[in-house]
Design a protein around this nucleic acid. Structure first.
Length: 664
DNA sequence: CCCTGCGCTTTTTTT
DNA sequence: AAGCGCAGGG
């Protein structure tokens, strides 16, 4: 197998022990090295289950699993498999074994962003914070920032400077209490709790660290402080830690990722072997010329130039009057290429924000071109999905107030806002979960008759299915519960449009399907594990859909990391969008991250790269003139033009960045 | 309690 | 443009 690797790659694959740092540019075969290395280790008598590989997304994990097994051939494919997963999935598995030591139940719920915001909203209401001063979403962002830096409420309170930060820090403390009372953790807690377990309980760390002899980490540049400490703790006993990354592709600083980890690696692991990969096998030299030129404007980086042996057409810049025309233009081109025999899966449309998707989706649908939208979390944003998940979470743990309050009166059963508030007050007063004060013997007095009946009905429903879900087959029970709730009728009632009813109901069925997939591949299916898995990985229908289908891919630059396409359209190349408005400002670090984002987008292209911009773009219903992105000038080598200085100041340039200067 | 309609605010990326 | 909170009538 090794003759398909170049010399540097082979060295990275075949170094069997000790710390290893692979600094690898875009398209130089990073992931390939990790995959081959896993196969190589197994061939050299490392037991598969003693290998841990950490990837950035679940999709990457699945692909790596498949490819590594394929490399081994039939002979070596045994029942034992290496553990390949994301940090978050890894931590869930660890927590399921030990989290009770931290005072959480083993069947804890995992709250996603929307649930975090709901908790934040109630916390802010409790401390009577003016919503204009600190919105729930702001609070969640702040908490997440603190958590990914490893700060707990006391530390956050200690380091708060402004009034806003003080308020947020004390809200953080209450937020954490609320989560714990509900038996829930958020995404950041998964990491934080794991780290705490390791730090406080030596025997837990020992048990977990003993499971592996080799650890590999892909996309190491996006590791945050907490993740790093977890890895370090796991790898210290054997020191067989191989990390692979590229400082130019660090695009998650806002989530706590620190490029410094990759620079500090050699200090923490002094005997580490360092290997550099610079030969790019993905893109043509013409594409790399633009990408190299662009990224050279970043000052905080290891200087390096990617080299390619392939040649192709030069990248292009296309302009359109507005975002509708931009979408129509790009889709029109793709359509023409398809007619000429190209495959839909060769094309990707990459944008900075999710909101840019819409016009492209419309045009693709109109042109009858198959497409998939990756990411956007649209599945969990659906009301019906959230409702059902809340029902199921209540079955697992009725103490989950957040979930309980969501479904208490959905579909309507006579329990209005007044009743709900009375229940919440009673629960605060009696220091009990809402579920407890729902029981007839503890209910607050004076509730309307309709509400009392509704509550009785609700309690009976939950109790019955709580029992049944433990005794009877999982999927059938869940299906019957949906039936019993009358959810289909609720959908038909809420949405008059039959087509919409259809698509809403389809989401419900997808959820049931996900449960049946889960039940099939698991020996002892259990609802809490299913829910934990689902919130981390999404329904696995995605797998067949996105990987298997021959479709144009529409996604954000962040989701595009690690992927490649023959032809890439990088759309919305405008100031305010890329670089994004939020990062333009006082510090250069923000701009540098946006530049890396642009670089990641460009280097996804194998054969043809097209950058597009709209001269005017609608914002909140009104058209607004735009300014071409400074990155266009940098990429084509026109950063000496006065127009470049102008766009950096937010002024309209006198001419557009359309051509590359002649070579000397 | 339930439903409808009006006005107000909204500004990134994701496991 | 769209989603949310709120007021007012059934």
């Amino acid at each position: 197998m090794d003759n398909t690797l170049n010399e540097a790659q082979r060295e990275a694959v075949e170094t069997l022990s000790g710390p290893l740092l692979v600094l690898a540019g875009a398209g130089t075969g990073k992931t390939r090295v990790v995959t081959y290395r896993i196969a190589h280790l197994i061939q050299h008598r490392v037991r598969p289950e003693r290998i841990l590989a950490v990837t950035f997304t679940n999709k990457a994990a699945r692909e790596m699993q498949e490819r590594a097994m394929a490399l081994l051939g039939r002979r070596k494919r045994s029942a034992a498999k290496p553990e390949i997963s994301t940090f978050h999935s890894l931590c869930v598995r660890i927590l399921r074994r030990h989290i009770d030591r931290l005072g959480y139940p083993r069947d804890f719920a995992i709250y996603d962003r929307a649930e975090q915001e709901a908790v934040a909203r109630t916390v802010l209401r409790e401390i009577q914070a003016p919503t204009a001063f600190l919105r729930p979403s702001d609070l969640v962002s702040l908490i997440s920032r603190w958590k990914s830096a490893g700060l707990r409420p006391p530390e956050a309170i200690a380091q708060a400077r402004t009034d806003r930060e003080h308020l947020a820090a004390s809200a953080y403390r209450r937020y954490q209490k609320a989560l714990q009372a509900a038996g829930a953790v958020d995404f950041d807690d998964l990491l934080l709790c794991t780290e705490e377990l390791f730090a406080r309980f030596a025997e837990v760390l020992q048990v977990e660290a003993d499971r592996f002899d080799h650890i590999l980490i892909d996309e190491y540049q996006d590791t945050n402080a907490v993740q790093y400490r977890i890895v370090r703790a796991l790898a210290l006993p054997h020191r067989n830690l191989a990390v692979v990354g590229d400082d130019d592709q660090s695009i998650y600083a806002w989530r706590g990722a620190q490029v410094e980890h990759i620079l500090r690696f050699q200090q923490d692991w002094p005997e580490a072997k360092v290997i550099r990969l610079q030969m790019n096998y993905r893109s043509t030299q013409e594409i790399l010329r633009w990408a190299n030129r662009l990224i050279s404007f970043n000052r905080h980086r290891h200087p390096k130039e990617l080299i390619s042996e392939r040649s192709g057409p030069p990248p292009r810049i296309l302009q359109f009057p507005d975002e509708e025309e931009e979408a129509a233009g790009v889709v029109g081109e793709i359509k023409a290429r398809l007619t000429a025999g190209a495959q839909p899966k060769n094309f990707a449309i990459l944008c900075r924000t999710n909101e840019q998707h819409r016009p492209f989706e419309q045009q693709l649908r109109k042109a009858k071109i198959p497409y998939v939208v990756v990411g956007g979390m649209s599945f969990f944003d659906r009301k019906e999905v959230r409702d059902l998940l809340a029902y199921w979470r209540v079955l697992v743990r009725p103490e989950d107030d957040q979930a309980l309050l969501r479904i208490l009166n959905r579909p309507p059963r006579g329990i209005g806002p007044a009743t709900a508030e009375a229940l919440v007050n009673a629960s605060i007063q009696q220091r009990m979960p809402v579920w407890e004060v729902l029981q007839s013997e503890r209910r607050p007095p004076g509730l309307p008759q309709a509400a009392v009946e509704g509550l009785d009905q609700f309690c009976q429903l939950i109790q019955e299915f709580r029992h049944r879900v433990q005794q009877e087959p999982l999927v059938e029970t869940l299906r019957q519960m949906v039936e019993r709730i009358g959810y289909r009728k609720e959908i038909e009632h809420t949405y008059p449009d039959p087509q919409e009813q259809e698509s809403r109901w389809a989401a419900v069925e997808e959820l049931i399907n996900a449960a049946s997939h889960y039940a099939q591949r698991t020996q002892q299916p259990n609802l809490s594990e299913f829910l934990q898995e689902l919130t981390l990985t999404g329904p696995d229908q995605e797998e067949e859909d996105l990987l298997g289908r021959n479709a144009v891919v529409l996604m954000t630059l962040h989701s595009a990391k690690g992927l490649e396409f023959s032809e890439v359209y990088l759309v919305g190349m405008e100031e305010g969008l890329l670089p994004h408005k939020k990062s333009i400002g006082e510090n250069e670090a923000g701009i540098e991250e946006e530049r890396r984002l642009c670089y990641v987008g460009m280097t996804r292209a194998k054969d043809q790269l097209t950058l597009t911009l709209a001269l005017s773009r609608h914002k909140w219903g009104k058209p607004r003139p735009t300014i071409p992105s400074r990155f266009l000038y940098e990429a084509i080598g026109k950063a000496d033009s006065p127009n470049y200085q102008a766009v950096k100041k937010g002024q309209t340039p006198t001419s557009r960045p359309t051509r590359e200067p002649k070579k000397k």
